[in-house]
Every structure is written in structure tokens, then in C-alpha cells.
Amino acid sequence: MRTYTADITNRETQPLSRKAVQRSQITHYMKRHRLSIHTVAFVAGVPLMVVWRVQQGEPITKEHAHTIRFAFLCLTGVPYKGIFAVYPEERKGTR
């Protein structure tokens, strides 16, 4: 059977979205270290939905991002160098 492989070397491509990059990084890190969202949520002390949101590339609070990053380090001994989507900080008292 003959297979056809298209040559796309000279074609213009679209860059990956930030959300897609985050999902890829988290998935790769968790698979490499055999982590479940249940374990990460338990060690980080955050609700399971927060870790699920991280996996989906959805924004979380800065505090949750810090605790999850620390939980990754505690569980694996390897710092997570990927990105997290974080809610923008609200400015207090400015108009």
C-alpha cells in the first residue's frame, strides 16, 4: 500500500494559542511524572476543579498557581517551568 505525505515545508502556518501551549506543557509534565489531578489537588490543598482548569488551559488565581507549582515540585523534585493562565489582577481604588 502506498501512502502519500504532503510537503508542507513552504506553507504558512498559524502559531499555537497560549491555551494550547499550556495544555500541552501540563499534559506532558503530568504524564512524564505519572501524576493524577487527584494527587496534585490533594498535595496542593486546592479543589480538584482548580487542577482540572489548569489542565484545560483555563485561568486560575495567582495563589492557586503558586501552590500547584509548589505541589509539582514536592511530588516530583523537578520544578515545573511551564505557564499557567492566571486571572488578571484587579486594581484597587483606581478610576
Rank of each mutant, 00 (worst) to 15 (best):
M1G: 13
M1S: 15
T3S: 06
Y4M: 12
Y4E: 13
Y4F: 14
T5R: 12
T5K: 13
A6T: 07
A6S: 10
A6N: 04
D7G: 06
D7S: 10
D7W: 05
I8Q: 14
I8F: 15
T9L: 09
T9A: 13
T9Q: 14
N10W: 05
R11W: 13
E12F: 03
Q14M: 10
Q14E: 14
Q14N: 10
P15A: 13
L16R: 08
S17R: 06
R18M: 12
A20L: 14
V21M: 12
V21N: 02
Q22S: 06
R23T: 05
S24F: 11
S24W: 06
Q25G: 09
Q25T: 10
Q25I: 00
I26R: 04
I26M: 13
H28N: 13
M30R: 06
M30D: 02
R32Q: 12
H33N: 14
R34E: 10
L35Q: 11
L35K: 08
S36E: 11
I37G: 00
H38L: 12
H38G: 13
T39I: 03
T39V: 08
V40Y: 01
V40A: 03
V40N: 02
A41E: 09
F42L: 15
V43F: 02
A44C: 06
A44W: 02
A44H: 07
G45A: 10
V46K: 12
P47F: 02
L48Y: 10
L48N: 11
M49K: 09
V50I: 15
V51L: 01
V51P: 00
V51E: 00
V54Q: 03
Q55S: 08
Q55G: 11
G57F: 10
G57C: 05
P59W: 02
I60Y: 04
K62D: 13
K62N: 13
E63V: 14
H64K: 05
H64I: 04
A65C: 11
H66K: 15
H66C: 09
H66V: 14
I68S: 00
F70N: 15
F70K: 15
L73E: 04
L73T: 02
C74A: 12
C74Q: 11
G77S: 05
V78N: 04
P79K: 02
P79G: 01
Y80Q: 03
G82S: 05
V86H: 06
P88S: 07
P88W: 03
E89H: 00
E90M: 02
R91S: 09
R91A: 09
G93P: 08
G93S: 08
T94P: 03
T94G: 02
